[in-house]
Design a protein around this nucleic acid. Structure first.
Lengths: 160, 160
DNA sequence: TTCATATATTAGCCTTAGGTAATACTTTTG
DNA sequence: CAAAAGTATTACCTAAGGCTAATATATGAA
């Protein structure tokens, strides 16, 4: 393996590189995506709701929301309502779209029980290129439905 | 979203759940996979080599190797050579196979520049079900090469 | 309006996994 | 065989992101 062009990094290493560029950790992406989901309907969300939706304790939410506020992605004042800024809304929408895209792809190739979990796991880490490939492949599959039909047959024939 | 059956967890949350079951963190998986890769040829590997291959500093390697030794996955004594135990070899092989499987899949659907990075990112987190789906889809694509050929046409026709 | 309940914050702990600087072994070499 | 070079360890720092317990604020009902 040529070190120069096949630079390996640990999982953690890639995360750090990514953070330097985006300023959003995977965890923050989770929070922001969930805030976006909820705010689309209600316009705002409370700490305890996020705590519930994300399955974390309230203090973790408070801290992360405060950080998102520092980054200008949400408006939040102590004991108040969490609302998205324009920028937060923009990014939140992208995050949700990414989630849906990956989920849809995994679903197409047959992931069922672990769908949410696997989507969640992949979405924060995939590159723009990877996402684009999946997107393309997705629409290819949509435009050629016989492929997935035949895939189903194929699976059955192998005793899945 | 019904809370009971669509339990959302943050990215971090899933990692924690996973760790409880497997006792191997993503980082440890990286180390073990790399140790396996290297030991397949040489039979052993040194701390400084891992440090180099994984792009982390030596002290991080020492610590993680010591943990892997505690878990019975490698044989290691201070200042010595890192070698795989039988169990470590077994798991290392699985990890490398998983890596290759995902890499192969991403490559098929067109990921190029980010191939190593995206593979690395996905492999530690995907479920057994997700992996199985990808595996199936992979062999389906292998058995039906016209699909990917047409996919290439499709991409071209869309100005990729 | 006061008190109970609901909601949120603060303080502080834990673990992982990176990092550096200083130190300790090991091996090679003159 | 002693010193230099190579390799590894220890001690300690940092940050993220979980957690709990204690405290603070807000709100609704008697």
């Amino acid at each position: 393996m040529d070190k120069r062009d096949r630079q390996f990094h640990t999982y953690r290493g890639y995360q750090k590189i990514k953070q330097e560029k985006t300023r959003l950790t995977p965890s923050m992406e989770d929070y922001l995506e969930m805030i976006y989901r909820h705010c689309k309907g209600e316009g705002h969300v409370r700490i305890y709701q996020l705590s519930d939706l994300l399955n974390v304790q309230a203090p973790s939410v408070t801290r992360t929301v405060q950080r998102l506020a520092e980054l200008g992605l949400v408006d939040y004042e102590k004991y108040g309502l969490v609302k998205l800024t324009q920028e937060g809304e923009r990014i939140g929408r992208i995050l949700l779209e990414r989630h849906i895209l990956i989920e849809s792809f995994l679903s197409k190739i047959g992931v069922r029980d672990a769908l949410l979990r696997d989507t969640e796991m992949i979405e924060h880490n995939i590159s723009v290129e990877g996402l684009r490939s999946i997107e393309f492949f997705n629409s290819y599959l949509d435009d050629n439905p016989h492929i997935l039909k035949e895939f189903e047959e194929y699976k059955k024939s192998r005793g899945y």
